[in-house]
Structures are given as structure tokens and as C-alpha cells.
């Protein structure tokens, strides 16, 4: 290959990267821009730039309420799904039981279900049981969908885990609790952090399942969707930007804390 050919390739590659980045970030940037307007119509450039929408968003009880609902669901989903998924992943790593392959496929099935269908199915199920949907049922529905994904994420990190390490530790005088703290948990930790992030983001941004299962409570994506469809104002993109910032802050915080969880002892 010649040098000029090489540099041409490099230029092409840089352009490709640029296009991808633009495609990814232009929509986000445009939401930010839209939030800085003071009209009900999406138009650019704005005649008046204003932060009124943010003032309104931060001032209303609704914004806080939406975030609280979504956050409650996401936190519940993270805690429950990480616990279930950790045990599931450990079971996969530890026991070679008959039907293990089949179970591995079955457990992933909900992921391939169209989410609205899963949401509808769960709503019918809840109604049949006589349960009135609210944010807690939405959390349950999210968990059904998220647990398989988190199990997979944690399993991947456990793939090369030699369970004989636990026996070796026990044989070297560790108690069951010490074995868990010194061997099992450190092996699980990186997977738990990744899995928790996945669970959080998947729940935080979920619309199709929430629509069916949250009942009277409204999550952030639900509110954004309905207000965009019927009653649009710059308040909508402003709330969206606040929501994005909130989730980004949580993810960054988790990433910063990651070395603490996975540090070598």
C-alpha cells in the first residue's frame, strides 16, 4: 500500500468518525437549543434566547415529581435486579446442571420480546391479580425486562472465574463469610457495577413498558412523550435536559466510585 493511499484512508476514517459523532450529538444539542427558546413553536434561530423554561421547570412541583418517580423506579430496579442477577450469574458459573444451556436461552427470552407486548402482558397479568398499577408495578415490569440483561452482563465478567478459588480459600482457613468477602465479592464487583449502570439507564429511559404499567404515576419519559405530542412548550426540552444531566451525573458518579468497589484488597 502506498503512503498517499494510507493518508487518504486516514482522512476518510476521520470524516466517518465526525459524521457518526454529529449524528449522535446533534439531536442532543438541538434539544438544548430548543430549551432556550420562549415560544411554543420549534423554530430556529430563536428571536429571543431565554432561560425562562429552566426557571419554570425548576420552579414547578411536576419536574421534581417526575424525577422522583423515575428515580424511585430506577433505584428499585437496580437493587433488585443486581441481587437476582448476581445469584443467577453465580449459579451459572458454579453449577453445571442439566438444562443449563436451555435455561440460559430462556432467561434471555424477555429481551427479545417487543417491549410494548411485554408491557401489555404484564398489565393484563397485574389486572388479573387485581393489583392497581403505580410506580411500584412499573418497577416490577422493568425488573422482569432488565434482570436477564444484567445477568448476562455479570455472567460475562464471571466467565473465567475458577470456583475452586472458593474451596481453596475455605481450605486455607477462611470462614464461609470470609470466602464470600475475600473471593466471591471481588470477582463479582466489576460485573455488579456494570450491571447496575445498565439497569439504571435501561429503567431511567424506558417508555414502552412504563406506559402500560405505571398507572397513575408518570415517569420522566412518559411525561416528555405526552407533552411533546399534545401540549408542547420549551418546558419539555428543558425538563429533558435536566433529566439527561441528572442521569449523566449519576453515571459519572458511579464511574468515579468504580475503583473503590473493584479495588484490590
Amino acid at each position: 500500500m502506498t503512503g498517499s493511499n494510507n493518508s487518504a484512508l486516514r482522512v476518510l476514517r476521520s470524516m466517518w468518525l465526525l459524521v457518526v459523532l454529529l449524528l449522535l450529538y446533534v439531536p442532543i444539542a438541538s434539544v438544548v437549543l430548543a430549551s432556550l427558546a420562549n415560544t411554543r413553536y420549534m423554530r430556529f434561530p430563536h428571536r429571543v434566547w431565554s432561560l425562562d423554561a429552566y426557571a419554570q421547570a425548576l420552579g414547578t412541583y411536576t419536574t421534581a415529581n417526575l424525577h422522583l418517580t423515575s428515580l424511585s423506579i430506577a433505584v428499585a430496579v437496580v437493587i433488585v435486579s443486581v441481587i437476582i442477577a448476581s445469584f443467577g450469574a453465580l449459579a451459572f458459573a458454579r453449577y453445571d446442571w442439566a438444562g443449563r444451556k436451555l435455561f440460559r436461552r430462556l432467561v434471555l427470552l424477555p429481551v427479545f420480546f417487543p417491549q410494548p407486548v411485554l408491557g401489555l402482558a404484564l398489565l393484563l397479568y397485574l389486572t388479573a391479580l387485581g393489583i392497581v398499577p403505580d410506580w411500584k408495578t412499573a418497577a416490577f415490569a422493568h425488573i422482569v425486562w432488565v434482570v436477564p440483561i444484567v445477568t448476562l452482563v455479570i455472567s460475562i465478567r464471571l466467565y473465567h472465574y475458577d470456583v475452586a478459588q472458593e474451596e481453596a480459600a475455605f481450605d486455607l482457613g477462611a470462614t464461609r463469610l470470609q470466602v464470600f468477602r475475600e473471593i466471591t465479592l471481588p470477582a463479582l464487583a466489576p460485573g455488579i457495577v456494570s450491571g447496575a449502570l445498565f439497569a439504571f439507564l435501561l429503567s431511567w429511559s424506558n417508555l414502552p413498558i412504563s406506559v402500560f404499567t405505571s398507572g397513575a404515576d408518570t415517569t420522566l419519559p412518559e411525561w416528555l412523550y405526552s407533552r411533546t405530542a399534545t401540549n408542547y412548550s420549551p418546558l419539555v426540552p428543558a425538563v429533558a435536559v435536566i433529566g439527561t444531566a441528572a442521569s449523566a451525573a449519576i453515571v459519572l458518579l458511579a464511574a468515579a466510585l468504580r475503583p473503590v468497589f473493584t479495588r484490590k484488597r
Binding site: E167, A168, D171, G173, A174, T175
Partner: peptide, 16 residues
């Protein structure tokens, strides 16, 4: 095993 004064070297070595 954790209360016996014995120790095993495993086939996989089972190093941490």
C-alpha cells in the same frame, strides 16, 4: 476443611 490442619494444592491451582 477450614478447621483441619491440612491443605490442598488443586489441579487448576485455584490461585486468587
Amino acid at each position: 476443611a477450614n478447621a483441619r490442619p491440612t491443605c490442598m494444592v488443586f489441579q487448576s491451582l485455584a490461585l486468587f
